[in-house]
Design a protein around this nucleic acid. Structure first.
Lengths: 229, 229
DNA sequence: CGAGCGGTTAAGATAGGGTTAAGGTTTTAA
DNA sequence: TTAAAACCTTAACCCTATCTTAACCGCTCG
């Protein structure tokens, strides 16, 4: 089972504060990279896979909001926690709109930042424009699915199912949940879901040796790379 | 069908506040069930699949924290946002520890609750509980059992039995109770349970010197480490 | 020593999931 | 507006993982 060690990125121009955070996090076994401005941060984010990003709103040159927007635009769904000195509601709303997942107002207690970071890091953001599982990509806005760069021909319902499975990846999603998500209150009283899954499989996996669509008997379906837990 | 529609559960005993929230949410196309106490909430949660749960910490009878813990123990990973009147750090930390994903202090702006709920609902919690007995681990949500980090191959019914035994560990569970839990109304009229126990033993204990599955003659079965009572 | 309890094994039954094709509905395009 | 295409549901069929069943084994204890 996975160790409790997390790797997060702190984007903060106040070097004193940054150092304090890094040291505090080290005590709790959280490894913390540090970037002092937005450009540097974006660079690091594209190179590494972080469990979470702590982002000061008030950065020189590129603002925190811009960085946030940029990250989401790239399809990176690492959870983001925003830090700010101000506490106006508008700031928060704007932050969430740009793709942040949580918000903390300066000054804050280290313990709270710690805990919020840990909670944050356990999940995916779900705030991205694109979902990616291996070489499978879903453009959420366009509702188009690509594998290995090639556009697949999925029906609207099929795409919805794939979206759900990709959001939950690598977890199993129960038939019940799929049905409720796709059909809401009036599910078909037939094996319609089975048929949709069949078509989805054909599109996503037929031409590839690595299968991404998996059935977990009596539990449901999952989209993930074969050896992911 | 409506596109961006979410379904959340509000657990709140202040009926005025609840009504306000429900109405506000309706305007933004978020359908909101309401439960006025913890017992009711748990009932609804098991029956429906919500996109998020908004949980007042301060409930009559069963506290919000208890409800939260209960939900996670059931393996339900719906994201939870906690509401509270207090603003002590300890409350927050405890809330996160019990499996909450976000936190909002009363009084709050409707717009902020709205936005936090929407962000919350897009992602999975990642906060589910796991059952552990020595090096045996059951992932409740995935219904997967590991020993010493290795995934075991248990059938659905086998997993159900193991879950029950692990929940009751280190106590003995009678055959009668196992049968009732697994088969409810129509138990097999054969030695099916024996066979399941055989397979469970094979998976859990065959490759290890410390046996965790124990038979207590004429009483039932238990999963525990050998020296435990 | 034989009756009862629990473990082991293998075979048959069943249910869950995969595949296919037909028919009806909705969407799209002319 | 109408015809064609795309899409969705349905039902029938097949296969396989899983579950049940029954028979047998071996121990223990009265």
């Amino acid at each position: 089972m996975a160790r409790n060690t997390l790797t997060v990125l702190l984007v903060e121009d106040d070097r004193d504060l940054a150092e304090t955070v890094v040291e505090y996090f080290a005590l709790e076994n959280v490894y913390c990279d540090h970037a002092s401005d937005g450009a540097l941060a974006l660079n690091l984010i594209e190179r590494h896979l972080y469990d979470g990003i702590i982002l000061d709103l008030n950065l020189p040159r590129v603002s925190g909001l811009q960085v946030c927007e940029h990250i989401r635009h790239k399809g990176i769904d690492t959870p983001i926690l925003m830090l700010t000195a101000k506490d106006t509601l508008d700031d928060k709303l704007l932050g969430f709109e740009k793709g942040a997942d949580d918000y903390l107002v300066k000054p804050f207690a280290m313990a709270e930042l710690m805990v919020r970071t840990q909670v944050l890091a356990k999940r995916k953001s779900g705030q991205v424009a694109k979902l990616t599982v291996k070489d499978l990509v879903l453009d959420i806005k366009q509702q188009e699915v690509y594998r290995d760069g090639k556009l697949l021909s999925l029906s609207p319902i099929g795409t919805k199912i794939v979206e759900l499975l990709m959001r939950e990846s690598p977890n199993v999603v129960s038939r019940k949940k799929i049905i409720q998500t796709v059909w809401a209150d009036d599910p078909p009283d037939s094996n319609s879901l089975k048929v949709h899954m069949f078509h989805i499989r054909k599109e996503i996996d037929a031409a590839h040796s690595e299968k991404l669509v998996h059935t977990i008997t009596s539990k449901g379906f999952a989209i993930k790379s074969s050896e992911d837990v």
